[in-house]
C-alpha cells in the first residue's frame, strides 16, 4: 500500500475570502506582520498498486479529474511511504 498526501490550494491572485478574512482578524489581534493568509485542503489517500510509479500516476489522475478544480486550484502530491 502506498500513502500520498495531496495539498490543494487556491491559485494565487484568485479571490480567497477565507484567507482575507483570517488575515484581517490576525491584524486585529496585533499580528501586524501578517502579509497574506491562504486556505488549502489536505487529502490523504492510501492506495494499493503494483508499484510506486503506478500509484503516483493513479493519484495524479484523481487530482486532475476530481480532487482539484483546475479552474481555480493547483495541487502538490507527496509520497509518504
Amino acid at each position: 500500500m502506498y500513502t500520498f498526501v495531496i495539498q490543494v490550494d487556491r491559485k494565487p491572485g484568485l479571490s480567497d475570502p477565507e484567507g482575507a478574512t483570517t488575515a484581517r482578524a490576525l491584524h486585529d489581534l496585533g499580528f501586524t506582520g501578517v502579509e497574506h493568509v491562504s486556505f488549502g485542503r489536505t487529502i490523504t489517500i492510501d492506495i494499493d498498486a503494483e508499484n510506486s510509479h503506478d500509484a503516483l500516476a493513479t493519484v495524479e489522475s484523481m487530482c486532475a479529474k476530481l480532487l482539484a478544480n483546475p479552474v481555480i486550484e493547483h495541487y502538490t502530491i507527496d509520497a509518504t511511504s
Binding site: 487556491r10 479571490s15 480567497d16 475570502p17 477565507e18 478574512t21 478544480n69 479552474v71 481555480i72
Partner: peptide
C-alpha cells in the same frame, strides 16, 4: 455546470463568509 466545465469559472465562498 461550472464544475463540469460546461460553463466557465467557479463559485466560491461569499466575500463576507
Amino acid at each position: 455546470l461550472c464544475e463540469a466545465g460546461i460553463l466557465g469559472g467557479a463559485l466560491v465562498a461569499n466575500q463576507d463568509l
